[in-house]
Amino acid sequence: MTEPPAADQDTVIELRGVRKSFGELEILKGVDLAVRRGEVVVIIGPSGGGKSTLLRCVNLLEPVTAGQVFLEGEDLTGPGVDLNLIRRRIGMVFQQFNLFPHLTVLDNLTLAPRRLLGLDRREAERQANDLLSRVGLADKVDAHPRRLSGGQQQRVAIARALMMSPHVMLFDEVTSALDPELVSEVLDVMRDLARSGMTMLCVTHEMGFARELGDRLVFVDGGVIAEQGRPADVLDDPRHPRTRQFLHKVLR
């Protein structure tokens, strides 16, 4: 455990022995996970198994109880780390979108780059328009979030995260709150992003997405990584009985 942190710049995220408790209840019981640059890691597992908690420990929205989290070799759990600066490099997209309802789509995108990066309005809006075109919502710049469908809101949320030019993106069941017919428009954006070389850590129940785009599939159960491997291998030939049981339920 005392070896130097992943000095090779190819490891973007590394968790070492991460534990997380809420009061008496231990949710993560020692998670080790390294994500290489450009890798798409898909996390699956039963409800309540700690997938969201795991993701929130990566950008330390939840402070870890024990263990270390590294971003590009830097120990985020070390003393004197400014998490607010670190989080600019880690994009996050939530199941419930969490767009800012008091702001237009454009202002949702430009708020952070203008306030935090000091971008002037013109430049921020140019970038926002580019990203909105990329997610197919160029015509919605002036709309308010509540006027958009769930799929549109989630694409705006992805664009908002991308405005900070993150080095890695975290996705927490971003299609779970959507009507079935809206799932694919969001997955299309994620596919685009994965192909562009973005490093991604995705919690999802979309096994098709995992198989197609995942470089690695991680099965989280009972607060640990019970099994991981190439998506096709894990999906077609799970080793762990819990994985088998879980997949049997979701693929049925």
């Binding site: 929205l61 996050m92 952070a112 306030r115 935090l116």
Partner: peptide, 25 residues
């Protein structure tokens, strides 16, 4: 809570989350 979470994830410090996201709502 998701509002403050989203702002925090973008890199806003506590007072920025309050000022730009939570208080206006």
């Amino acid at each position: 809570h998701g509002q403050a979470d989203a702002a925090a994830a973008l890199g806003f410090p506590w007072h920025g989350r309050m000022r730009h996201v939570v208080f206006p709502q």
